[in-house]
């Protein structure tokens, strides 16, 4: 997995609440057996009309924001299904960070597995960042994961929280399976004891 340290890029405002995984990537694109190539279908129904033409008003279709690497999104971002196609589509589009007041649990986890940093901020900070994102001139932000800072275009630094283990994995681009297999002996001895007590499992 690619390492995440400092990200500097355009933030696109999508303040709609309850952005669900069907909006992020509709079901017709789940038939793929690959992880890549989903970016052009991100937000498919909001981005393209029935004839497949781009809907000009949609934020990610605007010239400036089509190069966004950050989304400032509404509450309960990523609710719905467990499809990892949602973060795959975001990543493939170029999104590496999502800022919201809250995320759905499964989506939140899936982001970290794909090198995307979801940041939870307070309502007040969210409003400030949304306003920044809405103006092209102030929409460029810097995300410093190591120091846990969001740096606004005017230089203001805002702190954010992130789980230590998830931060460590992102900073070092670590793959979970490799890490877990370091505990292979522990798993085996657990399994042995467990199968004695729970013989039917």
């Amino acid at each position: 997995m690619e390492k995440f340290n400092i990200l500097e890029g355009i933030a696109a405002p999508i303040p709609l609440i309850n952005i669900d995984t069907d909006m992020l990537i509709p079901k017709q694109f789940l038939k793929t057996i690959k992880r890549t190539g989903l970016g052009e279908n991100l937000f498919f129904e909001m981005r393209y009309d029935q004839n497949g033409n781009e809907i000009k008003d949609f934020i990610l279709n605007k010239d400036h924001y089509s190069k966004a690497s950050i989304i400032v999104g509404g509450a309960n971002f990523g609710c719905g299904s467990s499809r990892e196609h949602a973060p795959w589509a975001l990543k493939d589009f170029g999104i590496k960070c999502i800022i919201s007041t809250s995320f759905a649990d499964i989506f939140f986890n899936n982001c970290f597995k794909n090198g995307i940093l979801p940041i939870i901020v307070s309502e007040d900070l969210h409003q400030i960042l949304l306003q920044d994102a809405e103006m092209e001139t102030t929409s460029i932000m810097k995300i410093d994961l190591e120091n846990q800072k969001i740096v606004r275009n005017n230089g203001d630094q805002l702190d954010f929280e992130v789980d230590e283990f998830k931060k460590y994995c992102l900073l070092n681009g670590l793959d979970d399976i490799g890490l877990t297999l370091k505990s292979a002996d522990k798993i085996s001895s657990f399994e042995k004891e467990y199968s004695k007590k729970f013989s039917w499992s």
Binding site: I106, N114, I177, L181
Partner: peptide
């Protein structure tokens, strides 16, 4: 509970979940 595909791979390989 539901898991993502990376976690599916993790469970297939280790029978555990972080």
């Amino acid at each position: 509970h539901g898991i993502g595909t990376s976690e599916v791979e993790h469970v297939l390989a280790t029978q555990t979940l972080i």
